[in-house]
C-alpha cells in the first residue's frame, strides 16, 4: 500500500526518532511512504497566532503539492501539522471564496483531492493477519496513552476520536499486549508551543501529566506528537527543577512501542535518542527472557 507522507519540520530535527520509527514500522508492515515533494513548514502555532491568511496559505501549498503528485491520502505523524493540514483543508473546502483567494496566494489552484490522516489511522490500516504474525515480543506493560490536544481537537472538524476519553491509541496498545491505564490527563495540554518562550508554564503543565501517569502506575507514557514528546522528554530537567522532584518514566512514540513489539531494531526505532532512557524490559521472542531496551 502506498501512502503520501508529510514529515514536517520536527521530524527532520528534534524529533528525528519519530520519523525513524514511522519509517521502520511502515517498512515492516509493507506500507510504502512517499514523501510530499518539496514540502514546506505548515506554519505551526506561529502562523495562526500572527496572521490568519498565512496560516492557511502555508498548509495549502503542502496540500496542493501532495495532490499534484497524485496522492489521495497523506499521513501526517506530527499531531500539530496534522491539525493544521486537516483544518485548512476543511476550511478551504467549506468556503469557495477563501479557496480561490488562497489558491491565488500560493499561485496554484487548490482542489482538495488529497485527504489527511494521522499516525493512529495509519497503524489502524495494518491488516489483522499482519498483526497476528508480526507481534514477536508483546509489550506487556502498564502504559498511559497520552493523546494531547491536536490529535483529537477540534473534534467537530477532525471527527477522529472522542474529545474527552479517546480510545484509539489504547486499542492499538492492547493489540501489542500492553495494559493501558485509566487516567485523567489523556487530553490535557502539555504547554506545546511555549517550550522555549515560557518554559515554566510547560514545566507546570507537563509535570501534572507525568505525576498523574506515575501515580496511577504507568511504566511508560505513549505519545503520537513530537511537541508532546519534546515537552515530556527533552524538557524533563526543567519539569524536575520546577516541581523539585525526579521523574523516571520514559516517553515513547506509539510507532516505537509497536515497532518494539514487532521485534524491530531499537536503533532503527531511534530509542537511543531520548533524553529519558527507555529502561523498560522487553520480552524477546526467541528466549522468552527479558532484556532491557535502551
Amino acid at each position: 500500500m502506498k501512502i503520501g507522507f508529510y514529515p514536517g519540520c520536527s521530524l527532520t530535527g528534534s524529533s528525528r526518532e519519530y520519523s525513524e520509527s514511522v519509517k521502520a514500522l511502515a517498512e515492516a508492515v509493507g506500507f510504502e511512504l512517499l514523501e510530499v515533494p518539496d514540502w514546506n513548514c505548515c506554519g505551526a502555532t506561529a502562523a495562526h497566532n500572527l496572521n490568519h491568511e498565512l496560516s492557511l496559505a502555508l498548509p495549502a501549498r503542502i496540500l496542493a503539492a501532495a495532490e499534484a503528485a497524485g496522492m489521495e491520502e497523506v499521513v501526517v505523524p506530527c499531531a500539530a501539522c496534522y491539525s493544521r493540514l486537516f483544518v485548512t483543508r476543511h476550511d478551504l473546502l467549506e468556503n469557495e471564496d477563501l479557496k480561490k483567494k488562497v489558491s491565488e496566494i500560493i499561485g496554484t489552484e487548490y482542489k482538495g483531492t488529497a485527504r489527511i490522516i494521522n499516525i493512529i489511522e495509519m497503524i489502524e490500516r495494518i491488516p489483522e493477519e499482519k498483526w497476528q504474525t508480526a507481534i514477536k515480543a508483546p509489550f506487556a506493560h502498564k502504559v498511559a496513552c497520552y493523546y494531547g490536544c491536536l490529535l483529537v481537537r477540534p473534534h467537530k472538524i477532525l471527527n477522529f476520536d472522542r474529545p474527552e476519553e479517546p480510545q484509539t491509541m489504547d486499542a492499538i496498545m492492547k493489540k501489542i499486549g500492553a495494559n493501558p491505564i485509566d487516567w485523567a490527563f489523556k487530553v490535557e495540554c502539555c504547554g506545546a508551543g511555549f517550550s522555549v518562550s515560557r518554559t515554566p508554564t510547560v514545566a507546570r503543565l507537563s509535570g501534572n501529566i507525568l505525576t498523574d501517569a506515575i501515580e496511577r502506575g504507568a511504566e511508560a507514557i505513549i505519545v503520537a506528537c513530537p511537541m508532546c514528546h519534546s515537552n515530556l522528554d527533552m524538557r524533563r530537567s526543567a519539569i524536575e527543577k520546577f516541581n523539585k522532584k525526579k521523574y523516571n518514566i520514559p516517553v515513547i512514540y506509539i510507532t516505537q512501542a509497536v515497532g518494539l513489539a514487532m521485534g524491530l531494531d531499537r536503533k532503527k526505532l531511534g530509542l537511543q535518542r531520548h533524553k529519558v532512557p527507555v529502561n523498560i524490559p522487553v520480552e524477546t521472542a526467541a528466549s522468552g527472557t527479558q532484556t532491557r531496551a535502551s
Binding site: C9, S10, T12, G13, D38, W39, N40, C41, G43, A44, T45, A46, A47, N49, L50, L54, L58, G193, F194, V196, S197, R198
Partner: peptide, 19 residues
C-alpha cells in the same frame, strides 16, 4: 518573548521553507 518566538519562527521558514 512569546511574540518574539513566533516571529523568529516565521522568519526562519520564510527564508528556507522549513524550520
Amino acid at each position: 518573548d512569546i511574540i518574539a518566538f513566533h516571529r523568529a519562527f516565521l522568519d526562519s521558514i520564510r527564508t528556507t521553507g522549513r524550520l
